[in-house]
Simulated assay, not measured.
Amino acid sequence: MLNLREQDRKIEETRIRLSSLVAAQGFDMKNPEVIALSTELDRLIVDFEKAKKAR
Rank of each mutant, 00 (worst) to 15 (best):
L2Y: 10
L2N: 11
L4T: 08
L4I: 12
E6T: 07
E6H: 10
E6R: 12
Q7H: 08
D8T: 07
D8P: 01
D8G: 02
R9Y: 02
R9I: 04
K10M: 08
K10G: 00
I11N: 05
E12F: 12
E13M: 13
E13G: 06
T14S: 09
T14P: 02
T14W: 01
I16N: 05
I16A: 11
R17F: 03
R17M: 04
R17V: 00
R17N: 06
L18P: 04
L18V: 02
L18W: 04
L18A: 02
L18E: 02
L21K: 06
L21T: 07
V22E: 05
V22K: 08
A23M: 08
A23R: 15
A24I: 03
A24S: 13
Q25F: 00
Q25G: 01
Q25D: 00
G26S: 11
F27C: 05
D28G: 10
D28T: 09
M29P: 00
M29C: 01
M29R: 12
M29D: 06
M29H: 13
N31H: 14
P32D: 05
E33T: 10
V34T: 09
I35N: 08
I35V: 14
I35T: 14
I35E: 15
A36D: 14
A36L: 12
L37T: 09
L37W: 08
L37D: 04
L37H: 12
S38A: 13
T39I: 00
E40K: 11
L41T: 05
L41M: 06
D42R: 10
R43L: 09
R43Y: 09
L44Y: 08
I45L: 10
I45W: 04
I45P: 01
V46C: 00
V46S: 05
D47V: 01
D47L: 06
F48D: 00
K52L: 15
K52Y: 06
K52F: 03
K52H: 09
K52Q: 15
K53Y: 11
A54N: 14
A54T: 08
A54W: 03
A54Q: 15
A54R: 15
R55T: 06
R55D: 12
R55L: 14
